[in-house]
Amino acid sequence: MSGNWTEQHIPDQRGRVAIVTGANTGLGFETARMLAAHGAAVVLAVRDVEKGKQAAARITGDVTVQALDLTSLDSIRSAAADLRATHPRIDLLINNAGVMYTQKQTTADGFELQFGTNHLGHFALTGLLLDRLLPVPGSRVVTVSSTGHRIRAAIHFDDLQWERSYSRVGAYGQSKLANLMFTYELQRRLAPHGTTVAVAAHPGMSNTELARNAPAALRVPLTWLAPLLTQKAEMGALPTLRAATDPAVVGGQYYGPGNRGEIRGYPKLVSSSADSRDQAAQQRLWTVSEELTGVTFQR
Rank of each mutant, 00 (worst) to 15 (best):
L125A: 09
L125V: 05
L125M: 09
T126I: 03
T126P: 07
G127H: 03
G127N: 03
L128I: 04
L129E: 01
L130W: 11
L133D: 06
L133F: 08
L134F: 03
V136R: 12
V136C: 11
V136D: 12
P137Y: 10
P137W: 10
G138C: 11
V142A: 10
T143Q: 13
S146V: 06
I151K: 03
A153F: 01
A154C: 02
H156P: 08
F157V: 09
W162N: 12
E163V: 03
E163D: 15
R164S: 14
S165G: 13
Y166L: 04
Y166M: 04
G170K: 09
Y172P: 01
Y172R: 05
G173S: 04
G173A: 06
Q174M: 13
S175G: 02
S175N: 02
L177A: 08
L177I: 07
M181K: 07
M181W: 08
M181Q: 15
T183D: 12
Y184Q: 08
Y184W: 12
Y184F: 15
E185M: 02
Q187T: 04
R189Y: 00
L190T: 04
L190Y: 08
P192G: 03
H193Y: 15
T195N: 15
A201M: 13
H202Q: 15
H202E: 13
G204I: 12
G204F: 10
T208I: 09
E209I: 09
L210E: 07
L210T: 10
R212Q: 12
N213F: 11
A214F: 06
P215M: 07
R219Y: 09
L222W: 09
T223W: 12
T223K: 15
L225R: 01
A226M: 12
L228C: 06
L229T: 10
L229A: 10
T230W: 08
Q231H: 06
K232V: 06
A233K: 04
E234T: 05
G236E: 04
A237Q: 05
P239C: 02
P239W: 00
L241N: 00
R242W: 00
